[in-house]
């Protein structure tokens, strides 16, 4: 009786697992089927690197959007990663454990704030500040990078904290017993031990859309990868604050439009080739995310063979 129940449960779980996997595969196939013809017709190089995006005229060059996505992501990383890692170090090494137990869940809660709220703050507060003090239209790559940098903080802090917390206490004791100060112990030993994990989490945060978050559970490397996943995939906040101009940006104060924002903006009105071109953008994002995910997995594998 019991064995039979077990078998039925197994079957049901198998069906559920297969349908989850197959729907993912179908989505991927569909995106590629819709997106690749445009790239083949135009030539991959022309699609990726020509600067004219004018659907009415049949021009589909996505180079300005790729540039915008890279600038925004890079900027978000430059802002979010150092702040997040520093915060994680502080919480782990320089304050009592009780503070960590209270502050960490509070920070993780920040990840639950809808991105439209972050975007709203960006439009109302940040963009005017940039316009008044630095010039340009305000709604810009810089604004998007700052907002995104703040948005990825919870991811980076949370996973980096786990990574640093997972460093064996014997390293800490060994360093202090040799006369190291707290800070020397942190940067000479503890960060080295947690490095691959932190990296992985930041790369993942660059592509928020990634499904496989568990791969990056441990380590500072992991937190960096996660953060990159989030930054590349984030759409709503970037639409609101980046300014939405499809032209190649020349400074961080210029307006720009990212890959994801283009899809979100134009999908309602797109037909025919235009629609295919949007799917092709999806393919590009898909490939970027796959590359990031692979980096995350590889950096974590390096970590586990070490220990």
């Amino acid at each position: 009786m019991k064995a039979r129940g077990e078998k039925i449960a197994q079957r049901i779980l198998l069906v559920i697992a297969l349908s989850a996997i197959s729907s993912l595969i179908l989505i991927a196939l569909f995106i590629f089927k819709e997106g690749t013809p445009v790239m083949l017709r135009m030539g991959l190089r022309k699609f990726l690197f020509s600067r004219e995006w004018d659907p009415q005229a049949g021009l589909f060059g996505i180079y300005p959007m790729i540039a915008a996505s890279l600038w925004v992501t890079l900027g978000a990383m430059l802002i979010g990663a150092p702040l997040g890692i520093a915060g994680a170090i502080f919480l782990n090494e320089f304050v009592p454990k009780t503070v960590l137990r209270i502050v960490k869940p509070a920070i993780e809660l920040l990840a639950g704030i809808p991105s439209v709220v972050y975007g709203f703050i960006g439009v109302m507060v940040l963009a005017p500040l940039i316009r008044d003090h630095l010039g340009g239209p305000g709604l810009s790559i810089l604004a998007a990078a700052i907002i995104l940098g703040v948005m990825i903080l919870p991811t980076v802090i949370s996973i980096s904290t786990d990574a640093i917390g997972a460093v064996p206490n014997s390293y800490r004791e060994g360093a202090l017993a040799l006369g190291a100060t707290r800070w020397q112990a942190v940067h000479m030993v503890i960060l080295k031990a947690a490095r691959s994990g932190i990296m992985a989490s930041i790369i993942l945060a660059m592509g928020r859309a990634i499904g496989d978050l568990k791969a990056a559970r441990s380590g500072i490397m992991a937190s960096i990868i996660l953060a990159m996943g989030r930054a590349i995939g984030e759409t709503m906040a970037v639409i609101m604050v980046a300014g939405n101009t499809v032209k190649l940006p020349h400074s961080v104060l210029d307006s720009a439009r990212t890959l994801t924002a283009t899809i979100a903006f134009e999908m309602a009105s797109a037909t025919g080739r235009h629609r295919e071109a949007l799917f092709a953008i999806g393919v590009v994002l898909f490939v970027i995310i796959m590359i990031l995910n692979t980096c995350a997995t590889v950096s974590l594998r390096g970590r586990t063979t070490r220990s």
Binding site: S170, G174, A177, V189, K192, R306
Partner: peptide, 17 residues
């Protein structure tokens, strides 16, 4: 003080260096 008085621990704890 800790430079003058060194310590060897129960489990070998070389750094991951």
């Amino acid at each position: 003080l800790r430079k003058r008085i060194g310590m060897v621990f129960q489990r070998p704890n070389p750094f991951p260096l």
